[in-house]
Every structure is written in structure tokens, then in C-alpha cells.
């Protein structure tokens, strides 16, 4: 599983945004909000990423609202959470080691 790391920024934030059931537009909005507008996912980027995450089984289809419109919701899986937490560990190591640079600036 480790050769899946590091995650791209898009994948990282998509996984975060589907910790609870979320749909395409909701994911774009949430990622933009929590990054202060720095990461704005293009719909094509998101579509490709969602399909690749589904085939890796890191996320799953949570619901398909047949009644009103075809709005699909996605939710992270156990595997997805595992990968995400591994990535967080890796990022923490980076930040920890970055402290070696302190005092040089």
C-alpha cells in the first residue's frame, strides 16, 4: 500500500471531504473553503480522481438520490481511512524534520 504515497493534494483533500457522505459539488466547495480558496478542484480533475478512488476502493458510493436528481454521494472506506492516516504520519514526519531548519532564517 505504501507505493500509493505520497497522495496528491487533490486526492488528500477529496478523501478528507468524504469523511462524511458528500457529493461532487459539495467536495469542490468544502475543499475550497478549508483551504481558504487555495485548492479549487476542477470538475474534470475531481471526476477522474473519484473514479480512480472508487476502483481502488478507498471510497464508495454512499447513495444515489433517484427520487429528485442523480446526485451521487460518496463516503470514505476503511481502506481509504488507513491510507489517509499513513499519509498524515508521513506529513507529520516532514514537519517534524523541517524543524532542523529552525534558526537559519
Amino acid at each position: 500500500m505504501d507505493n500509493n504515497l505520497p497522495l496528491t493534494e487533490a486526492i488528500f483533500y477529496i478523501l478528507l471531504a468524504v469523511r462524511k457522505p458528500n457529493h461532487g459539488y459539495g467536495i469542490i466547495q468544502e475543499v475550497s473553503e478549508i483551504t481558504g480558496g487555495r485548492v479549487v478542484l476542477g470538475p474534470g480533475t475531481l471526476y477522474g480522481a473519484i473514479n480512480s478512488l472508487l476502483s481502488k476502493k478507498w471510497i464508495m458510493l454512499y447513495s444515489e438520490d433517484v427520487a429528485s436528481r442523480k446526485k451521487k454521494e460518496y463516503l470514505i472506506t476503511k481502506e481509504g481511512i488507513e491510507v489517509f492516516l499513513k499519509e498524515v504520519k508521513r506529513l507529520e514526519e516532514l514537519v517534524r524534520n523541517a524543524k532542523l531548519m529552525e534558526g537559519l532564517a
Binding site: E9, A10, G42, G44, T45
Partner: peptide
Amino acid sequence: GPFEMYTDVESKINQ
């Protein structure tokens, strides 16, 4: 607002 289908290098390369 702005509209771009692909916003990162990986997905641009894929396209």
C-alpha cells in the same frame, strides 16, 4: 467564477 476542467498537473497529463 473561473472554470478549468483540470486543475492539477497529474490530471492535465492524463487528459
